Computed example of a mutant assay.
Amino acid sequence: MAAAVALGRDAQGTSAPNPNVGCIVVDADGTIVGRGATAPGGRPHAEALALAEAGTRARGGTLFTTLEPCNHRSPRGPACSALIVEAGLARVVVGIVDPDPRTAGAGLKRLEDAGIAVTTDVCADEARDSMAGWLTRQRLGRPRITLKLALSIDGKIALPSGESKWITGEDARAHVHFERAHHDMILVGRGTLQADTPRLDVRLPGLEERSPRRALLSRGEAVTGWEMLRSPQDVFRLHDVNDLLVEGGSATATAFLAADLVDRILLYRAPIIIGEGRQSVGYIGLDAIGDAHGRWEARDGRSLGIDRLEVYERVRSNQAEG
């Protein structure tokens, strides 16, 4: 299952509107004979690809999948639960149950009715984390939103003049490009567009083709090559985006935080002090320090060359799927 989770993670940012599922097929002797991850655009599904690779060697074997196999036929392909029954597998191991009402346990029932042994909730936390974007869209009706901030030690994002290239070093910037490759869309405000003319592409060798769609938060005129969001609330109409990366600048970060739409923060902190300069975030509606506590949980922290990455996730009362 850990290998299936890794396959699914690699498909993050390419599978929308479908979940980024990973799948492994093991034959009756315990040898891996099929691997699959949801294809770009959502089809074929991970199970279909893994079964196609395994062929007849899947009969009597075990299939590991991070998400319950779908139970609904689509114009784009058959139900994965039906493919599994046809393949003659003896056992299916599932990370988490599908919250999509078209499946939601029905896929597992079809397998069990066919005499296939089913085990669920294996590496469930890891599977859930790997598909956090899609699960957020299922639960909240919008993408999972990650806010990226590059700061000095004293919390500034730029000099008073607006100069900000480069606050962080090469390793931190490479990590940002890796994150971009695993998001469906990347968003900035018009101020950042005018000041920096950002490309917002992925410039890591081998991942250049995974540059996300570009979006602009602005009430002004549309810009060729950019999708327009007139307000942060427009994220609720992004039905084909699982993971949205918000990169800048201060006004945009403030708008999303004030609307309580940020689920994850990537904070890249450089070992420099700027002093007087531009703040990363403005007023977000908090009037008491007590109101700020308990909202964010530290999930990761590591060195990236000379810089430090801190990852925080929003603590919400409705974390469970469904």
Score class of each variant (00 low, 15 high):
215 A>I: 07
305 G>K: 02
5 V>K: 00
149 L>S: 08
301 G>K: 05
215 A>Y: 08
126 E>L: 13
194 Q>S: 15
129 D>M: 05
16 A>C: 00
102 R>Y: 06
313 E>A: 11
234 D>C: 10
142 R>M: 03
169 G>I: 08
306 I>W: 09
260 D>Q: 11
218 S>T: 15
296 W>E: 09
290 G>V: 14
14 T>I: 02
165 K>R: 09
306 I>F: 04
166 W>F: 10
320 A>L: 11
184 D>W: 07
176 V>D: 13
82 A>M: 04
139 R>V: 02
114 A>N: 10
291 D>K: 15
248 G>F: 05
86 E>K: 12
243 D>C: 03
265 I>W: 12
19 P>M: 01
298 A>R: 14
82 A>F: 04
83 L>N: 01
259 A>M: 08
105 G>S: 13
179 E>Y: 04
143 P>Q: 06
92 V>P: 12
274 I>W: 06
198 P>G: 06
104 A>E: 13
75 P>D: 07
18 N>I: 00
154 D>T: 08
20 N>P: 15
86 E>C: 11
230 R>M: 11
24 I>H: 03
264 R>V: 04
179 E>P: 03
15 S>W: 02
149 L>E: 12
230 R>H: 15
112 E>I: 12
145 I>F: 04
31 T>L: 12
300 D>N: 13
214 R>M: 06
290 G>I: 12
300 D>M: 07
